[in-house]
């Protein structure tokens, strides 16, 4: 095995282990931090692919913003109650079966595609960040999605305010 393969296995195992831990742990804050660790392992995998923008976006957005939000929400809830309720409900065998079928389907599909033994294409000589930036503003490429993202973010912002605004009012009347 080359060093890269070993590192890939290490990061993949860390990521999977922490993902499992974040699902099974009883302590919600700990499981949120396990999720953060898992996101970091994914960032490390991106780094091994030299996908620079993905690495920083993964850490800045997922770890920095989304995971912080999750930790915050978990801290805002009443923790001590959560540690006593059961972690599964009675439909879990059906859910497990469904999950297994989906994983098998995805694995089969990937296998059929057959890119496991292909070498990846060489990266273009130009800076991929510049290429991405050009693609974002090029009307023939991703201009519409780029602007649509801003509308999406705008609606997310408004939605967040409406939802949280209701929560705030309720809190004050209590």
């Amino acid at each position: 095995m080359t060093l890269e393969q070993i590192l890939f296995l290490v990061f993949a195992l860390i990521g999977l282990g922490l993902a499992l831990a974040s699902v099974t742990m009883r302590n919600l804050v700990r499981s949120a931090f396990a999720l953060i660790g898992c996101l970091f392992a994914v960032a490390a995998l991106f780094a091994m692919l030299d996908a620079s923008l993905f690495v920083v976006a993964q850490v800045a957005v997922y770890v920095g913003a989304i995971a912080t939000l999750i930790v915050l929400v978990v801290m805002l809830t009443r923790l001590e109650q959560q540690e006593r309720i059961p972690q599964t409900h009675r439909y879990w065998p059906a859910a497990a079966l469904l999950a297994a079928v989906i994983v098998a389907g995805v694995a089969w599909g990937l296998w059929q595609y057959g890119f496991f033994d292909q070498t990846p294409p060489a990266l273009p000589a130009a800076d991929p960040i510049v290429e991405l930036g050009r693609a974002l503003v090029d009307p023939e490429k991703f201009l519409i999605p780029f602007e649509a993202v801003s509308v999406l973010l705008l609606s997310a912002l408004i939605g967040a305010v409406l939802v949280a605004g209701g929560a705030n009012k309720k809190e004050r009347t209590e």
Binding site: V56, A60, T68
Partner: peptide, 25 residues
């Protein structure tokens, strides 16, 4: 010399925030 150096600064800074959040909790 990372080609995403400036965003790297923003991303690495979040580690400190996480550390403080962890310490506090």
């Amino acid at each position: 010399d990372l080609n995403v150096g400036v965003l790297y600064l923003a991303a690495t800074g979040t580690l400190g925030t996480l550390g403080i959040l962890m310490a506090g909790w």
